[in-house]
């Protein structure tokens, strides 16, 4: 798990914990649990799944995810959330369109996920070990270093969702590494400027 501290963000939003799970065992059960929590009268049920569950195959770099977290937390700090929570806002920020359902479907976890990024945005008051323990309670799998993220990226889906296949920048890339650099920069840029698109 990695912990990021955001400069200048208010105390209740300045920390983000991110864990990457491999060999996820309970993808379908986890989705059912999230659905049930949404309508549960018990606050504790919602607290248990109070994370952003992100599809790692659509994330191109740490910076990509950090940028989405930063923009979501900014919206939360300023009272400009377009979705219900800062965690769903992260998924909304990642998706290139304004459609919330589509954002959750594409960038959220699915019944067939075998890898998963789990993100908690909050304050520094909760120790990292506690957060990791809470993550391990909802996601059953192996927590691996975020450096393994790169190998998981599904570049053709990223290009498809961001409509990059016919762009000059992609067609003129020198090689596959260069293309990945370009795609990453475009994708990070799109996430950062989501609030001013259209």
């Amino acid at each position: 798990m990695e912990t990021y501290t955001f400069n200048a963000y208010p105390d209740h939003l300045n920390t983000a914990h991110v864990a990457l799970f491999h060999n996820l065992k309970n993808a379908a059960a986890l989705r059912a649990q999230i659905r049930a929590a949404a309508t549960s009268p018990d606050e504790a049920d919602r607290d248990a799944v109070n994370f952003a569950f992100v599809e790692p195959r659509l994330i191109t770099s740490r910076l990509h995810l950090q940028t989405a977290i930063a923009q979501a937390s900014l919206a939360a700090a300023q009272g400009n959330l377009r979705t219900k929570t800062v965690h769903s806002e992260i998924l909304w920020a990642l998706n290139p369109t304004n459609n919330i359902t589509e954002a959750l479907r594409r960038y959220g976890n699915s019944d067939t996920s075998t890898t998963l990024l789990v993100v908690r945005v909050g304050g520094m008051d909760v120790p990292a070990e506690t957060v990791l323990k809470q993550m391990n309670e909802v996601a059953i799998g192996d927590v691996q270093p975020l450096d393994t993220l790169e190998a998981l990226t599904d570049w053709s889906s990223v290009k498809k969702y961001h409509k990059l296949n016919n762009e000059v920048a992609i067609k003129t890339a020198r090689d596959v590494n260069h293309e990945h650099q370009i795609v990453d920069n475009i994708v990070v840029t799109s996430v950062a400027m989501k609030s001013v698109v259209s």
């Binding site: 930063a70 762009e167 920048a169 840029t189 950062a192 400027m193 609030s195």
Partner: peptide, 18 residues
């Protein structure tokens, strides 16, 4: 963003608070 998509060398955007 338009420049990046068109392959022009420009800095990418990292943060926006319009």
């Amino acid at each position: 963003l338009k420049c990046l998509r068109s392959g022009v060398n420009v800095p990418g955007v990292r943060f926006v608070d319009a």
